[in-house]
């Protein structure tokens, strides 16, 4: 455990019955960090989050928070907040009473209670909705109530389960800003779970990419986006052309291909579609598909290496379907992968 760690998971193993969902997971999170747990469904991110909240018993390992081992502390005594994906508001209570729920259990009464509840509701901009029932609010408003309900408890860690996935595009941006504001103003440590790399990149200080119950890579959004270490992460953050490397040659479709320029020594190489040069190069492919995407045009090429995705600026001349094109996978642009699976 590093000196800076505020929340740390040590050799955490979590299981449902006989099936292990997370194995030997180690993770240190600093105070005030905004962390994204990113991965496809079934990677163990939600399971990990539930274990931090104490909703799922730990099979082995430890959870430490603010210097105390909370592995076996019951969830109602952890000071960990959770904003559920479904918001989980109490349907029989007004917005006001939803926000007051935890404070009342803490023993707050009278003006002290009222002041905290009012400021909680105000901070998410719902003052005029205090007497509404959850069913009378939009999804975005319900989520803000859920956020206020957790935040008035002044949790040490705030967990958010897929906080943006149920919202439409405009509300997403609004909520993203809202979360960043809350985090900045309160300095609360936040961990959110998402399967959407764009969400993670936009919001997080650090991203933890998970795969099959283990951490695949931890890094800043820039690291994850620009320097994925494994083929899994590369694939996940939009490197469409990922190949294994064998003796300095690309291994694709069962054959080896020589690259122009010196290949870095790595287990694999990855190129985003826009890193592929079209028109010149040692490889040839046939245009199988093309689509216009605003500022650029996407091509799908049928090649001896398999399908290659390439992107060029939209101002370039259009290549018709069936056209044979030369292309290159430039070695100097490739991102080296230390793990290929």
């Amino acid at each position: 455990m590093s000196d800076q760690a505020y929340l740390s998971l040590e050799k955490l193993t979590l299981a449902y019955g006989d099936s292990v969902a997370v194995a030997d997971l180690d993770l240190d999170i600093r105070r005030g960090e905004l962390i994204a747990l990113l991965g496809p469904s079934g990677c163990g991110k939600t399971t990990t989050m539930r274990a931090i909240a104490g909703l799922l018993p730990v099979r082995s390992g430890h959870v430490r928070l603010d210097g105390a081992d909370i592995t076996h502390v019951s969830p109602n005594k952890r000071a960990v907040g959770l904003v559920f994906q479904s918001y989980a508001l109490f349907p029989h209570l007004s917005v006001y009473e939803n926000v007051a729920f935890g404070l009342r259990l803490k023993g707050l009464r009278g003006t002290e209670l009222d002041a905290k509840v009012q400021s909680g509701i105000k901070s998410v901009g719902l003052s005029s909705f205090a007497n509404r029932r959850p069913a009378e609010l939009s999804g975005g408003q319900q989520q803000r109530v859920a956020l206020a309900r957790s935040m008035v408890m002044e949790p040490k860690v705030l967990l958010l389960d897929e906080p943006l996935s149920n919202l439409d595009a405009r509300l997403r941006l609004e909520m993203r800003t809202e979360l960043q504001r809350v985090q900045k103003e309160t300095g609360v440590t936040m961990i959110f779970v998402t399967h959407d790399q764009a969400e993670a990149l936009a919001l997080a200080d650090r991203i933890v990419v998970m795969k099959r119950g283990a951490i695949e890579q931890i890094g800043s959004p820039q690291d994850i986006y620009n320097r994925p270490q494994s083929s899994f992460v590369a694939d996940f953050v939009g490197f469409e052309n990922v190949f294994a490397l064998e003796g300095g040659k690309l291994k694709a479709a069962g054959s080896l291909f020589e690259l122009q320029g010196e290949a870095p020594s790595a287990a694999g190489l990855a190129w985003r579609p826009r890193m592929v040069s079209l028109g010149t190069g040692p490889f040839r492919g046939t245009v199988r598909g093309t689509s216009f995407a605003g500022d650029h045009r996407e091509y799908l090429l049928d090649t001896p290496l398999g399908l290659i995705k390439a992107e060029v600026e939209a101002s370039q001349p259009v290549h018709d379907l069936g056209t044979e094109l030369a292309f290159d996978l430039p070695a100097h642009k490739a991102v080296p992968l230390s793990q290929f699976s």
Binding site: P75, N76, K77, R78, A88, F90, P91, L105, A146, S150
Partner: peptide, 19 residues
């Protein structure tokens, strides 16, 4: 018809399971 996660929400806000 009642979501079960509201119970978890109540617990995380300080309530016991029975509560």
């Amino acid at each position: 018809n009642l979501r079960s996660d509201i119970e978890e929400a109540a617990v995380l806000l300080g309530s016991s399971r029975t509560g």
